[in-house]
């Protein structure tokens, strides 16, 4: 691809992304109040969307082959326990990632 074509591709990706971000604000902004149902969804969707993202984070784990998802499972359990215990996001993320790297580089090789 030429530089111009690459720029056009990036613009297309930006446009698609921005559509998903701006659309709700154009559809529902204005004088009339947001429908109760939409208001409910706005509140109720937080937990569901975060749940979806967790699954998204683990989406490439293959339990049938390779390490059978064991490094991911061990790291997941440790991260959850550590976070419930300490409630320190940076610690949970750093320790969990460090543990996972140790597991895939030295234990499950």
């Amino acid at each position: 691809m030429t530089s111009f074509q690459i720029a056009l591709m990036i613009a297309a990706v930006a446009l698609g992304t921005m559509l998903t971000r701006f659309l709700p604000f154009f559809v529902f902004s204005g004088k009339k109040p947001v429908p109760k149902y939409v208001e409910y969804l706005g509140k109720a969707l937080t937990g569901a969307a975060l749940g979806l993202l967790v699954v998204y984070g683990f989406k490439n784990v293959n339990v049938l082959a390779g390490t059978h998802g064991l490094p991911e499972l061990i790291s997941l359990v440790i991260i959850v326990l550590l976070h419930v215990w300490k409630r320190n996001m940076l610690l949970s993320i750093a320790a969990g990632t460090g543990l996972y790297m140790l597991l895939v580089n030295f234990v499950f090789v």
């Binding site: 975060l50 993202l53 998204y56 984070g57 683990f58 959850v80 976070h83 419930v84 996001m89 990632t97």
Partner: peptide, 9 residues
């Protein structure tokens, strides 16, 4: 993954 998981927890 760890980040998304911790945010969820």
């Amino acid at each position: 993954t760890a980040l998304l998981l911790v945010i969820f927890v």
